[in-house]
């Protein structure tokens, strides 16, 4: 604690880039274009319940798919001692070296009606896949973009499990299913919780994925907010109010989940 002064740049940074914008959002949310106080921005929000519902549903589905795909993968990699691990890690990280927008845009070309997949399916004689512009394409885009954020925390938690704990369970007569259910899985929960946070939050607030893969038809909260600031319906006050409500909902649901995680939430990155 001797070097408190070292924290000054960090505190300054937070104040400038986290606290100040948050204050601006709060101020905007409670004011009108003329600058007077109002609650209309919030009371009018009921009409966007559908957008809220769709955002949380799609983000939930994407998170679920990420767990179902990511957990076995992380488990496999953490238990694998060979060269395969390095290779697999590289493959997981590789797409992240490329810009997010480009990665998502390339999916547009893959999924288009006459895109790569459909041309391939057609040559083989299979029916075409018509998912561009649907919620399914949006979920696919979320899973593709955010899967590494699920795999990596789970992997690092499982990898750090003391092998002696597992050996002890085996010595006490547990079979491999019991070892997984009673030892590995509970110990890996903090990793799952961080993974869920890191997938769910960007998914619920994304606007690029839904704009590109959802064809502008599957409006999510991120799109709704973006529209109010940069898009075709200019109203930063409404945009701020929606952002604020979204933040509160996300914080509350994250809080509930951490409670659910029974104090193992220290690993959760918020």
């Amino acid at each position: 604690m001797k070097h408190k002064s070292l924290a000054i740049p960090y505190v300054g940074w937070m104040a400038l880039f986290v606290v100040a914008p948050l204050i601006l959002v709060v101020v905007y949310a409670f004011t009108t274009r003329e600058g007077g106080f109002t609650l209309d921005n919030f009371s009018n929000m009921v009409q966007y319940a559908g957008v809220f519902g769709r955002s949380f549903l799609l983000a939930f589905l994407a998170t679920l798919v990420c767990i179902l795909l990511g957990y076995p993968l992380a488990l496999l990699l953490a238990r694998e001692q060979s060269r395969l691990r390095g290779m697999a890690m590289l493959l997981i990280m590789l797409p992240m070296w490329m810009n997010f927008l480009l990665r998502t845009y390339s999916w547009v070309f893959l999924l288009e009606r006459n895109g790569f997949f459909n041309t391939l399916l057609e040559t083989v004689g299979l029916p075409k896949l018509d998912i561009i512009g649907t919620p399914a394409a949006v979920v696919l885009g979320m899973v593709y973009n955010f899967l590494p954020f699920m795999v990596l925390p789970i992997f690092s938690v499982i990898e750090k499990i003391d092998p002696r704990v597992i050996e002890a369970a085996q010595d006490l007569g547990a079979n491999s299913a019991q070892v997984f259910r009673r030892v590995i899985f509970p110990l890996s929960l903090p990793g799952v919780l961080s993974g869920v946070t890191m997938v769910f939050i960007p998914s619920v607030s994304t606007f690029v994925i839904s704009r590109l893969l959802g064809g502008g038809m599957n409006l999510l909260l991120g799109d709704l907010i973006e529209m109010q600031f940069l898009g075709s319906a200019y109203n930063p006050h409404l945009g701020s109010a929606i952002s604020l409500v979204m933040m509160v909902i996300v914080l509350v649901s994250m809080g509930l989940m951490n409670r659910f995680g029974e104090g193992e939430g220290e690993a959760v990155l918020l």
Binding site: G216, L219, M227
Partner: peptide, 13 residues
Amino acid sequence: LYDSEWTRLKSAT
């Protein structure tokens, strides 16, 4: 009105 109607259109489910 254009702004609010456009939001109504885009957020329709």
